[in-house]
């Protein structure tokens, strides 16, 4: 594992309510190109906050985040330029309801990257093919099932050709029968070499796909390692307790 470091997080803290709630208490880690990192932990542990700090949807209270060498927590840095390279998928999809699927996928490349409409749509259609939703290009989000929405949300982010993809519990809001189709897309994405950080409750997915698993509790990384190390040979009692509950 000597690939280039994409994200380097150092002493990351995030406090809410003027410090009364310390969601993150000094997180330090690195994410390398091509790596798939799954973040697990009990609810309220701060794992979602950690993920949302990575593209500054949450502004860190202290600490630094280097994205491809640039400290994005520096207020003079134009975060919008860096967010283009950091794709994000939300638990509740957040497709734009007033746009067709195709428009959802092409608006950012057209407006932000200056791509012409034909090129953007060609690229979007290719991505839709990959997730078997080419026939839904002209549908509106309200006409799609939850699984379809999330697959669209993933390819919408991919349209910006990001260097890293963040997934915030992408399957938690789905009916059980739709979880599989979304995980399949994510597995395919991982195989294609995409750098991914996934906050997830899908332990099976983490075990199968992750290069590294982070167990976060009470705002700290309690333990990290390969899936094998975490799921079969956890060193910390807290990790074992959590895994016993969910597995």
């Amino acid at each position: 594992m000597n690939a280039e470091i994409i994200l380097s997080v150092k002493d990351l803290e995030k406090h809410f309510n003027e410090g009364k709630l310390k969601a993150l208490q000094g997180i330090t880690t690195e994410i390398r190109r091509g790596e798939v990192v799954c973040v697990i932990g009990p609810s309220g542990s701060g794992k979602s906050t950690f993920l949302r700090c990575l593209n500054l949807l949450e502004e860190p209270t202290s600490g630094t985040i280097l994205f491809e060498g640039t400290d994005i927590t520096d207020p003079t840095v134009d975060i919008n330029l860096h967010r283009r390279k950091i794709g994000m998928v939300f638990q509740h999809f957040y497709l734009f309801p007033h746009m067709t699927v195709l428009r959802n996928m092409t608006i950012a490349p057209i407006k932000l990257l200056g791509k012409d409409k034909a090129t953007a749509e060609k690229e979007a259609m290719a991505l839709l093919q990959r997730v078997n939703l080419a026939d839904r290009a002209d549908a509106y989000p309200s006409q799609l099932s939850g699984g379809q929405k999330q697959r669209i949300a993933i390819v919408r982010a991919l349209c910006m050709s990001p260097d890293v993809m963040l997934f915030d519990e992408p399957t938690s809001a789905l009916d059980p029968e739709m979880v599989g189709e979304v995980l399949d897309v994510m597995k395919e994405l991982a195989r294609s070499g995409m750098t991914m950080v996934c906050v997830t409750h899908e332990m099976g997915f983490a075990r199968e796909v992750a290069d590294r698993v982070l167990f976060i509790d009470e705002g700290k990384i309690v333990e990290e390692g390969t899936p094998e190390a975490i799921f079969s040979h956890a060193q910390e009692q807290r990790t074992r307790d959590f895994l016993n509950k969910v597995l």
Partner: peptide
């Protein structure tokens, strides 16, 4: 979430 989705794509 709509705002967050927009911002995460890189929109100002």
């Amino acid at each position: 979430g709509q705002t967050e989705a927009g911002r995460s794509l890189g929109f100002s």
